[in-house]
Design a protein around this nucleic acid. Sequence first.
RNA 1: GGACGCUUAGCUCAGUUGGUUAGAGCAUCUGCUUUACACGCAGAGGGUCGCAGGUUCGAAUCCUGCAGCGUCCACCA
Length: 853
Amino acid sequence: MNLPKAYNAQDYEDKIYKQWEASGYFNPDNLPGNGEPFSLLFPPPNVTGVLHLGHALENALMDTQIRYQRMLGKKALLLPGTDHSAVATQARVEKNLQAQGIKHPRTEYGREKLVSIIRDFAEQSKSTILNQIKKLGTSCDWSRLAYTFDEQRSRAVNELFVRMYRDGLVYKGYRVINWSVKGQSTCSDDELVYVEQTTKLYTFKYSKDFPIAIATTRPETKLGDTAVAVHPNDERYQQYIGKEYTINIGAAKPLVIKIIADDTVDMNYGTGAVGVTPAHSMADYDMYLKHPDIGLIQVISEDGCMTEQAGKAYQGLTALAAREKLVAWLKDNNLIIKEEELVHSVGTSDRFSDVVEVIPKEQWFVNVNKIIPGKNKTLKDLMREAAAKIKITPERFEKTYLRWIENLRDWCISRQIWWGHRIPAWYKDKEVYVGIKAPLEQGWQQDEDTLDTWFSSGTWTFSTLGWPKQTADLKKFHPISWMQMGHEIIFFWMARMILMTTYALDSIPFKEVYIHGMLRDKQGRKFSKSLGNGINPLDVIKQYGADALRLSLLKGITPGNDSKFYEEKVEDSRNFVNKVWNVARYVTTSPSIPPLKGEGGEAIADSWIESKLNRLIQEINNYFEHYQYSLAAEKIYEFLWHDFADWYIEITKFQPNPVLTKQVLETTLKLLHPFIPFVTEVLWSELHPGKLLMIETWPQADATKINPTIEKQFADIQDIVTQIRDLRAKYNIAYSTKITLFTKKPVSGTKDIIEHLTKVVISEGSGMGKVQLINDAYEFTLDLQSVIDVPKYQAQLKKEIVELKKYVVSLNQKLNTPEFISKAPARIIEVEQKKLADKKAILEKLEKSLQEL
RNA sequence: GGACGCUUAGCUCAGUUGGUUAGAGCAUCUGCUUUACACGCAGAGGGUCGCAGGUUCGAAUCCUGCAGCGUCCACCA
């Protein structure tokens, strides 16, 4: 075997990925054996651009999990896919077009042409993304590749829409919705991004005679007020409840304001009274539903300007201009009582980033509070019940999810954009038809609107498996065994999948969810286009390799918590990958080193490494079960580098055991494979030409090999070796300088190890030297006087003695405390007593050492 | 306003059910051309675990309060 000194990932990764693909083992149907199915589903990335490092983290998590499961012998499926992400993609393409000088893409191109431009963009983006996924080494089943907007998924979406419509869960209604003026489309409550803004809060009266003052930050909407709400128990306003007042503040018709009682009003805030504008506030609309007689007046239109109903003086003005004008009028009429600055958050559109207006409009909604026919439960109930059946890691996110359900309103699912699933509803005169396909007769017009992208993503766990057909895949792989996602997507996606699946399949969508944190840059900022701090994973891969990138993303993370990305981390992982490479290179090329005569020392090192290895396997399996990838990776890192390479391999240089060395290497490669699949696979093909590591059997721990006594003995040897090395380093004794170690006690099994690792010569029986090396098991005298600086060493010893004395005193005190003796468990007392005895012995020897010098 | 999270070495973070003198990587310093690896080897220094109380024989770990940072939610008009 002739491997280069340094591992160069670029020389191997593409080749290895092709081998994996060609093997067919990404597809669970081709895996050998009769293992249980294990399914894992890609959160489909948006086809709005390229994958960023956050996606790389997700890929690393998923692929590590699926490779582990595959090696456990399960029928492991990682199903890949992408999301057409309706609004996001259309907004993106429109922005691009506008940058090219196309001011109004929708009017200039028309529906068909614009959709086709978006499609081209999406396809382009999709292929970039799929290529990136391959570069990351993700072992997904490409034969099952899905897209939220492909034929199969569209069928599922339409089918579900129709079913929900027939069950009365999807309805068309006139309600207030969030409206992006810039995007000319609705958006759901969850799509709003709240931005802090300082505005003026005006406290005023509608007229001189009006009995109650109210406050608002948006005076212009007051042209559409129809009521004033007070708390039913508020004594100040009791007398007015139920009364109506006609006022005139400039609207087209004089406003009839009814005083209503509603317990959602906070008596202690402001004047304790709320001006109710049903048409332009979600909360006010809810009150209107409870008091429908107050009516609803729309004063702001879809273009963000005032409507005819707002009155001649205001019609056509932008909301802002109308505000100024109305404030001026109120001032002129001495109706303003107070003006104050107020910081509050305003909802803005996620995709078009303009302030969102609340306006009433006829739209399609999902009713979350209606009893589902035949089930005696609402969608909210189903979503709530599902939480108990799904294991969320970390658990705290379950609470977040449940609270969200409580606040959930009917979900507006229609969008006035063209990129997306067109709503399967047709109109002819006043007739409405909802069905999978258009009616056969002439004259039916399909609804112009498209569905919210999350409506399709919600079907993801089952539409990807062939639903509505009752496929074998659906039977085998649903519910999905494990999913991972970022916490920012819990409401958008996780909640919607639960809603859709519990309704359509009467089942939970997945058994377990792992919530990961957000990846941030070195300074802790989000990665974003506007900051320009984005990093393309491919650039990192090019420089350090996919394995290094993956490992660096997984190390140092804990479930649900954000992590930072920076290059030094990747470098460290790259160094580790190279270490793995060189360990394997050494193990496979070094049998020629002549064995030296040992005294049974090889038995200790061999049993020790076997013990450590089997302990490691146990730990790793435990970590995997608890999704502690970071800890698992760190443990293997530690073992491979600091146990296997630094100690065991160094010992095999004079006490070779080629069979065991190779065995340990192979087991370690298996344990590492889920994390760093490429390099381990390359090495495996060197060890076993023609075989694939990816389907090798995951190591099982042999508990009988775990031997604490041997581990303790070996730790003692390590201790002595380290002490000698420490002295060499402290007193600048070169390794070529031979120093002599005298011992009175037998050092069976350890002599060779100590001699070779420290380049000392061990002589028996004589105590000529002056430096005592002490630990629990061995006692040596080291003749160092010829080579060390004695006063310096004395000073060092004194310092150590002082510190040790302090510790012994405190330990002694603790052990003599009556409470400790009476209350601490016997196990602890025993440990502490032994500790005290050990430390005392060491202290004694150190003092003796000092005297002799 | 509510909820949640974070605060441990210069930096990035671990620390499982409370129990040896709190760990790792990076960075710093010292010494090594030891033929697998300088993407390396051998060492060293560096922390009153955010602050203040409490529970306990024993607290980084459990409880209470406070401070700073962050995230999410919300109908403060």
